[in-house]
Design a binder for these strands. Structure first.
Length: 493
RNA sequence: GCGCCGCUAGCUCAAUUGGCAGAGCAACUGACUCUUAAUCAGUAGGUUCCCGGUUCGAUUCCGGGGCGGCGUACCA
């Protein structure tokens, strides 16, 4: 590997010196008795005990025959104090060869320094892993401000290992993520939902409006798609008698990348037989409020300067009313030109080419979505933009469908699932026609799915929740990249 | 896709009108037995993202390209 920096050359020289002393720079294991947090919490000045800690050196201050350091592990950080006369000449020589970023094990007694910091007075030190590349560790001053460190966003995403290694708060985001997902699983498991896994590689994609990734299976010699949703397979499960199912997994959509979109993202989909969309509203409220409570300790939380109240029930606003209120258009009576008029005032381009469904969608996005800042449901969508949802009882131009919004962003989408196979076939046919007219996100005819419905799917409520976007709210992140460990980037040059 | 901004030492950042490319931290040598952005003395470290152009001379100006951020469009 060419282009080694002089810092790396120095580390490799140190590596050789360690080996000459018979020290293995890449040890096999270490028996630790405490984490730093346990050692700090358990400190008692009268019964100062011995601890064995392991972690990464994140600060190092040599003073001749003494050395201070900070060790960071998965639980926190703790100061170390080495004295030549206490660890011995040989061990102290090793201490002098330690670098920032090295992983070490330390054994010693816990005490409090003159300046008051609880510290381990080292008796023995073990090198566990030599860091051959310098970590961009910043220095924190008394005010807590970090000097130096790793700031370049490109390096942070490309080398997430370095980002994580130097930023405990980044590690915390992914702990929040794990806690949230684990809560969702427990919540659904307790209510009798069965977690299932359905195909990622699909002969036909469906269940959402999006362009897919295409791949090829060599021995079958056929093209396959990466799924854009789990919906159609999960409903096949319900047909088969798995009455309550859910899946948490990656969907893949071949679209642009921005702070709200990553080409692969995590979606929860839940289906419950004998339920409708009102049941799914109750489920969504209870589950999301539970996650928020579990992760943050409360259901009323402040995020980005706004107080969000997740305690059920959430406000429910009708799609038609919202459009009328914010765009001044009555979708029941307005013709296409009446839909274009308000859009023109907002400078939306290329309206003439758009079919009515897109105009409606555009009005909702432009005029209504930005107003949906607090947690709320939008209910009863136009049926022509809801090809997998049942008609609304008593008002068949609408579908029994809702979306859940926070900060003007859709986090969840749910329906009373369409289970009339003939109607489903007609809806697919309309999608196929839209595709023929140029809508490359329209759905495909899925004859196998219609066949499944012909066997009879019980009345079913279904809901999909964008996990990454929920995590953004919980973990106070403004970019989806910051809640995905390894977000999609262009090739490194 | 499009628009704006950025890319300089391992890291964080400077560099006047186009005039020898600098600092702090990290590194190296030395001093230092309660320090904490440790301190002190000294040393070394550069394809200024890449390609081309203008110029006596380009980190700087111009053109093209790469990567990233933000905004916008599509989408969850």
């Amino acid at each position: 590997m060419a282009g080694r920096s002089h810092v790396e050359e120095a580390r490799r020289a140190t590596l050789e010196r360690l080996r000459e002393r018979g020290i293995d720079p890449f040890a096999y294991r270490y028996e630790r008795t405490h984490t730093t947090a346990q050692a700090l919490a358990g400190f008692d000045p009268d019964t100062a005990g011995t601890v064995r800690l392991a972690g990464r050196l994140v600060a190092l201050r040599g003073h001749g025959k003494t050395t201070f350091a900070h060790l960071e592990d998965g639980a926190g950080r703790m100061q170390l104090y080495f004295r030549r006369d206490e660890v011995g000449d040989e061990a102290y020589e090793l201490v002098k060869l330690l670098d920032l970023g090295d992983v070490i094990g330390i054994e010693g007694d816990v005490f409090r320094t003159r300046t008051g910091e609880i510290t381990v007075r080292a008796r023995a030190v073990t090198l566990l892993t030599k860091a051959l590349r310098p970590l961009p560790l910043g220095k924190s001053d008394a005010a807590g401000d970090v000097h130096g460190g790793l700031a370049d966003p490109e390096t942070r995403y490309r080398q997430r290992y370095a980002d994580l290694a130097v930023h405990p708060d980044v590690r915390e985001v992914f702990r929040v993520r794990a806690r949230a997902i684990s809560y969702v699983r427990a919540f659904l498991d307790e209510r009798g939902f069965l977690e299932v896994e359905t195909p990622v590689l699909q002969p036909l994609y469906g269940g959402a409006m999006a362009r897919p990734f295409t791949t090829h299976h060599n021995s079958l010699d056929r093209n396959l798609y990466l799924r854009i949703a789990t919906e159609l397979y999960l409903k096949r499960c319900v047909v088969g008698g798995l009455e309550r199912v859910y899946e948490i997994g990656k969907d893949f959509r071949n679209e642009g990348i921005d702070r709200l979109h990553n080409p692969e993202f995590t979606m929860l989909e839940v289906y419950q037989a004998y339920a409708d969309y009102t049941d799914m509203m109750a489920l969504t409220e209870e589950m999301v409020a539970g996650v928020v409570q579990h992760v943050t300790g409360g259901v009323r939380i402040e995020r980005f300067g706004r107080l969000l109240d997740f305690s059920p029930p959430w406000p429910r606003r009708s799609y038609l009313e919202l459009v009328h209120e914010h765009a001044g258009v009555d979708l029941r009576t307005a013709d296409d030109d009446a839909l274009r008029a308000p859009l023109r005032t907002r400078g939306v381009e290329a309206l003439d080419a758009l079919p009515r469904t897109k105009l409606v969608d555009e009005i909702f996005k432009e005029f209504v979505e930005p107003t949906l800042q607090d947690p709320s449901f939008v209910v009863d969508f136009p049926i022509e933009v809801s090809p997998l949802a049942k008609p609304k009882r008593g008002d068949p131009i609408l579908a029994e469908r809702f979306e859940f919004f926070v900060f003007g962003r859709e986090l969840a989408n749910a329906f009373s699932e369409l289970n009339d196979p003939d109607d489903q076939r007609r809806r697919f046919a309309a999608q196929v026609a839209a595709r023929a007219a140029g809508d490359d996100e329209a759905q495909r005819m899925d004859e196998d799915f219609v066949r499944a419905l012909e066997y009879g799917m019980p009345p079913t409520g279904g809901m999909g929740l964008g996990i990454d976007r929920l995590i953004m709210v919980l973990a106070k992140q403004t970019s989806i990249r910051d809640v995905i460990l390894f977000p999609m980037l262009r090739a490194e040059t």
